[in-house]
Design a binder for these strands. Structure first.
Lengths: 109, 109
DNA sequence: CATACTAGTTTGTATTGCAAACTAGATGCT
DNA sequence: AGCATCTAGTTTGCAATACAAACTAGTATG
């Protein structure tokens, strides 16, 4: 019954990491956002945001689209379908784990 | 209004790390647990659990009590007051951040 | 007495997360 | 035109993880 804590301790770090959880959650609400927007939103440094995004792309959770707007470069980010399910699942899991830890009885098993 | 994502990306890593979140949450429910119990509960390896516990103690979130039960060593873990507030705060923050990201309007600001 | 078990800790390594330094092109100044 | 500055990122270097395998100290067992 209580593999709750086993699950908790095994949460997917790619999604769970605070900066990435913020990015993924933001993208799950606004569907698309560019680099500079996410930069302001999260308060991360550029280098930091850049590597987190690369990591998310490598994991197949987001798509990175580079194009030119006028003559300026612009990097657009969006969740992949996999990414969307991953964030949603992660928050659901957190909710559930929190809830079931609440009414967990340590004296059993 | 929406420093939500800034907060999200700045979550306290000492508490947020999955293994430690599991340990802290378990301790917040059962008040006291020994090493072997947490080991089974979380599914971590001994080495891993050991270092996480040391880190939590260093951060003042738990107390580690070593004594002998009969002639066998036994390590008891419990939250400090600081630890208790930290876990509770962390879960509350996750809840809140999740909630406010839901009804965040990307078109504003 | 030696072999195995219990309850952990230490060590070695590969992976991170981070900011500072760098890059490439666009824009502004004189 | 020539040089500095700005914009939008990426790469680099490093300190801090997280992890399991190897180790330790003491106990029980044959």
């Amino acid at each position: 019954m209580s593999e709750v804590f086993e699950k908790l301790s095994g949460l997917d770090r790619l999604v769970h990491e605070p900066a990435r959880l913020a990015v993924l959650t933001a993208l799950s609400v606004c569907r698309k956002a560019d680099f500079m927007y996410l930069l302001r939103l999260t308060g991360l440094t550029k280098g930091n945001l850049s590597t987190h995004l690369t990591k998310l792309e490598a994991g197949g959770l987001i798509r990175i689209e580079k194009k030119f707007v006028g003559r300026k470069p612009n990097t657009m980010l969006a969740l992949t379908r996999k990414g969307r399910t991953a964030v949603e699942k992660h928050w659901r899991e957190l909710d559930e784990l929190r809830a079931s830890s609440r009414d967990w009885d340590p004296t059993e098993e």
